[in-house]
Nucleic acid binder design. Structure first.
Length: 284
DNA sequence: AAGCCATGCAACCGCGTGTAG
DNA sequence: GCTACACGCGGTTGCATGGCT
């Protein structure tokens, strides 16, 4: 039993979109709004797969997209967010208004990787290349997991950062490989988060609190001194002087990996604000 | 001018997740 | 609990373009 195809392939166009198709899609979405992508092509009179329509709209046609070159500030923000989140392009894109995950992913692969390498920084580990090699060697020696710098194209679940890898290694030592495992491999223990090098680099106060902590008002939210509005701040993570449950926005809100409740009772808590803050200088 | 190669980016594909029946 | 569906995500592919020989 397999998944039914998302569309009848023999009756759909593929490849580059024509101007007419774009106009049809824009017209339809302006009139009916986004959503129900599966039925949209037929309703809009497009010989396209719903997926294709969604992608075209999100990555190219949306009116709020910021076209054009990335600024130096955006570059640095992407680098810092990547060091924190890994290849979670949608999460990174959520913090760059007007940019799409696809755009950022492409930009990362074509520009930023090279930029980091020219600085002598490994784009996957965000550590100096020599140091990263040492770390990889040490990790490989410590655990029976392939873990070297050639693994530039790990999958999302596997493409974790060194500070995530211990967990991954532990999981691989277990015989089972389940969805829970993949969550765990990305799950951040309080120790891992505290050790993460990105927080100080981003020049932010990365805090953790109970998942039910109220989201900040956009006007009070700052990211590297640059204010931004972001719907995703309704979820728990944000970079500011307020609290977050980091697990939530990393996709672990429904897993056991989110143990913020426990953390709140066992970790050092800013009693006044009721939050858990992480300050750890980068040790390279 | 022609051919080759590198690069950038739009689009596709497969899979994971959430949810309704 | 199982199944099918709808959506979203990340990795990959393939085409267009520009630079170089």
């Amino acid at each position: 039993m397999g998944r039914s195809p998302c569309c009848e392939k023999e009756h759909t166009n593929k490849g580059a979109w024509t101007k007419e198709e774009d106009e049809r899609l824009i017209r339809y979405i302006k009139k009916h709004g986004e959503g129900c992508w599966r039925t949209l092509p037929k309703a809009a009179g497009l010989l396209r797969c719903g997926k294709s329509c969604r992608l075209r709209w999100i990555n190219y046609l949306r009116p709020d997209l910021k076209r054009g070159n990335f600024t130096e500030e955006e570059d640095e923000l992407i680098i810092n967010l990547h060091s924190l989140l890994g290849n979670k392009w949608s999460l990174i894109a959520a913090r760059l208004p007007g940019r799409t995950d696809n755009e950022i992913k492409n930009y990362w692969n074509t520009h930023i990787k090279r930029k980091l390498l020219s600085r002598g920084i490994d784009p996957q580990t965000h550590r100096p290349v020599s140091s990263a090699q040492n770390t990889a060697a040490a990790d490989t020696a410590a655990v029976p997991v392939a873990n070297n710098l050639d693994q530039q194209h790990e999958t999302a679940a596997g493409g974790c950062l060194p500070w995530m890898r211990n967990t991954k290694a532990e999981n691989s030592n277990n015989t089972s490989s389940t969805t829970e495992d993949s969550n765990s491999s990305n799950g951040l223990s309080s120790e891992e988060i505290e050790l993460h090098p990105a927080a100080p680099l981003i020049n932010l106060e990365l805090s953790i609190s109970l998942p039910q902590s109220p989201a900040p008002s956009p006007s009070t939210t700052k990211l590297t001194g640059k204010e931004f509005n972001d719907q995703t701040l309704k979820s728990h993570i944000f970079f500011s002087q307020r609290a977050v449950c980091l697990c939530y926005n990393l996709g672990f809100q429904n897993s056991n990996a989110c143990n913020c409740d426990k953390m709140m009772t066992t970790s050092s808590i800013n009693a006044e604000a009721g939050m858990h803050s992480f300050y750890r200088p980068l040790s390279l």
